[in-house]
Amino acid sequence: MGFDFSLVIPRMGLFLDGALVTVETSAMALLFGSILGVVVGILRVVPLKPLQVLAACYIYVIRGTPALTQLFFIYFGLPSLGINLSGMASGVLGLSLNSAGYVGEIVRGGIEGVPAGQWEASRVLGLSYAKSMRFVILPQAVRSMLPAFGNEFVTLIKESSLLSTLAITELTMAGQQVRSVTYASFETFIVVGAIYLALTSITGFGLRFVEKKWNVV
């Protein structure tokens, strides 16, 4: 049996539109997830027990439940509380909250990896806890966190395929649509997979570039 890409190739525009949505949603989720994740990670190490526990619980729940369940909870569950979000809003919110749990752990690890002597030095030099964190600890922690951050971005690109279940026409959903018209399932998902691979490769490459640039001291 032969494979026929001639049905799929003319619909490249659909794939690329989908890919664009994939990039947009995962980039937004990365942005919001990172901001929230840094907050969660800092709360995780701040010397105030209630905040530590709060952050730990958040990470525990996020990492212990499937991302798809979290998305369904936001999209289908929250309306019971009168919170109605569009598919797109639910998707980005869900991915962001999910990512924040993982980024929180990355940030915590990064902060705890900075030697105690750095805290001590900044402290005896008069910096408050917050200023030590901002000017001394976090800048060092970020460098060690970069590889894990990169993995998180790659994970987000792949997990954004879950948004297809919320009727968002990202890359996987675009594939579904092409497949339902052309019945060329094999060819369609070869193309979809190849585009994902390209996206994750570019991301990985870009991050290694940033890492290298940042590590030149």
Binding site: G117, Q118, E120, A121, G126, V136, Q140, V217
Partner: peptide
């Protein structure tokens, strides 16, 4: 402002 401390391991900020 009252006291400075010098450590065995220097503890300079590497970044």
């Amino acid at each position: 402002r009252l006291v400075g401390m010098i450590f065995q391991q220097f503890n300079l900020y590497p970044h």
